[in-house]
Amino acid sequence: MAAISREEVAHLARLARLAVNETELDTFAGQLDVILQAVARVGEVAAADIPPTSHSIPLTNILRDDVVQPGLTQQEALSGAPDAQDGRFRVPRILDEEA
């Protein structure tokens, strides 16, 4: 049985903001299925009482003092912008959340 359906791949593409076309969907669905079947092997390990590791080196409380340091100028900040206007980053219209 396939680990992942074409519809699920389409859903992932939407979540990840990837405009994947129909042909690619088929390709990715097949490839992801192979990969997922392989990586699902992690489930074979009995690990119910094993704590997860998110950080390999056990450091805690790495904090910074509340002291201002110089940052970027507006020009530097906007230097890579695809589009800028009035010192701000310009973007196309945003789908609104309010009806």
Binding site: R64, V68, G71, L72, Q74, A77, L78, D86, G87
Partner: peptide, 30 residues
Amino acid sequence: SCPTEFGAEPNTQVCPVCLGLPGSLPVANK
């Protein structure tokens, strides 16, 4: 370590971290 004051010119209280520039990393404020 960018300042937080209100009313500055746009995008003048920014650095690679709070602009999310590739490669930048966060360090928490004590």
